[in-house]
Design a binder for these strands. Structure first.
Lengths: 196, 196, 196, 196
DNA sequence: TATGAATGAGCGTTCATTCAT
DNA sequence: GATGAATGAACGCTCATTCAT
């Protein structure tokens, strides 16, 4: 019989493994982080990880998808039904930036994953699905003339890659994003994609 | 006596190793590519690689610096003394884009390197130096009012990260950059950074 | 829960590795004995050795110190508080001889170690400490006139190197040490170092 | 046609290789000295060594035999027909000591060789032969009562191993052999082996 | 469920030896 | 003869994974 307390224990152990993995992998890289180290830091036996994850690749991919999910939830924070497309766009921009800047480990891990052989078809498909709310926002915005008639993949550059680039510079100390600069950057992105 | 043919042989072997490394590492990642595989694909014995490179890290870093150099030379192609800052900016934008789109392996390799433990202080310093012409272009542009008074690290987002993002989408097939779209993208970047 | 049987298993595996190492290294030399061979002969996997010893050097040095300890304990066997310095000297002489003659592998291993790059500062310091009882015996003997006033390093030649030389000849079959010859040899050493 | 100058060149190259080998091996040990390093230090190509020596083992063994020969010649220096057995014994003792103390590399190399897997049957047999003059001295000495009736292998301990032990202590700095101490040591050895 | 000792394939690297020039 | 680039077997060691307890 599984009581909810036992269930919690299980959840905890899984969560601890994931958190430890995130921290270690963002600091040390995927290939410089042995499973044995993750186990040690997580306070579990090496074999225990394999009760929750099939293998190292699965562990990494599940963590990646968890983080992507979390990241996109953050991006949609405080978006309200009545918001105009422009308001939504600006909020998402700032949300992304804020998330990255306050979640360096997550950002580093996700960026490492993007440039790695772990990016399998399954993972990419799962990520694709998560972007549905954004695809929707874009579709609505194009339909009502808020966005220019550009491919969504082009618009996304200004709300995803540009934001990421700013966040990285901020974290590395190369750039100090004041509120002013931030609003300039948001404005540039909005100008890039807004309808006429 | 060293004839030019013998010289060529030496150059060839080194070059073959570098090219094989580039191809394999861009496809399989740094840590999923054993030296033995590089040797096999390059058609040399495992030990031979070590005549030309001290170790795997050195091999990867020399390749990285070679590619960075090549990439930056491409970026400056057809820039002429008389060009205005705007003309220079647009040319560099298009040059970068063209280079990435036609050098997928190079791009993937360099991007992987950016998020890797191989980025040592020495390598970073060497790269820094290579960027001098761009730093200069920016300084001149700011001085004569062609560029807005923004931190260079901010301007670079629109001529480096944005271009890279477009190139990746183009290569992945998610976006088909027509000449028109390209010019729009260039225009957006220029609007983002130009002086008033 | 750790039962004593489990404990024994652990001890056994470590011990088996040490014994196998002793045998192989004394026969084949340090550099002609790969870790893989030690593993094979010990009946464990190659990686298992590294659970018990950090690396080959550590394995060899720990074995060396273990053997030195054992050897010196043998040398002090049956020495009793009431023994005169002469009795002690003679007993130690015979004990050393007996130990070497009945522990050929140990002797060869230790001799190899003495002429090897494994003799690090740490090891030498540890050995130095083990010789304290002998240094003490010598100091007392000099003080009470039992030993001549010679540097200890000179006295040690007649109780260490000479014994070793005899043991080697005995083991190689070049010399058959009868009890008579043995006592002659002891007498010669004693005459060499005794006080007047 | 081989002129004597060419012959000298050949001799020189062989000699240079042997000398370089001696120096490097005594300093770095047999297995920490690659053939390529010997070649480099000797100023010849790696392949050249193989014109003079079949392989590394042969090189080492030939060097060993050369040194043994040289060492034994030194040991017999200034021995004259009219010398008594005692005079001969004392001269040889001092000669050996002097040789070791002034030829540290040679001593270290030879000692390493004694405790190594290079000691093959062939080498041992060759060494055996070299000792003939000493065997003869001993036979004569026993016959005329100068030496005790002991196995030669026992006598040799006091003129070989004991001397070596003193030389090592002197070279390591543990013992400063004054002329007085030296003569005491010689006397002890002579007392050990002289007839009644 | 959880453990962690044990496994062994696989890695980066070295170096004695060969052989085309 | 002499060279030194090239070879490739072999080494020390790591670590993802398994499984008896």
């Amino acid at each position: 019989m599984t009581t909810s307390i036992e269930q919690d224990k299980v959840t905890d152990k899984r969560t601890v493994i994931l958190q430890t993995t995130l921290q270690l992998l963002s600091e040390r890289g995927f290939h410089n982080t042995p499973m044995s180290l993750i186990a040690e830091e997580a306070g579990v036996a090496a074999g225990t990880i394999y009760r929750y994850f099939d293998n190292k690749e699965t562990l990494i991919n599940e963590l990646f998808l968890d983080l992507k999910r979390e990241m996109l939830q953050h991006a949609m924070a405080r978006i309200e039904p009545g918001d105009t497309t422009e308001e939504q766009f600006r909020k998402v921009w700032r949300n992304f930036f804020h998330y990255y800047v306050t979640h360096e480990d997550e950002m580093r891990f996700v960026e490492q994953h993007h440039n790695s052989p772990f990016q399998s078809g399954d993972v990419l498909a799962a990520v694709e699905e998560m972007y549905a709310p954004f695809a929707n926002m874009f579709a609505v915005g194009v339909a009502d003339g808020s966005f220019r008639e550009l491919p969504m993949e082009m618009t996304s550059v200004y709300i995803y890659d540009v934001v990421l680039a700013f966040a990285k510079r901020q974290l590395s100390g190369k750039l100090k994003m004041t509120d002013e600069l931030l609003e300039e950057a948001v404005q540039i992105s909005w100008d890039a994609v807004k309808g006429t």
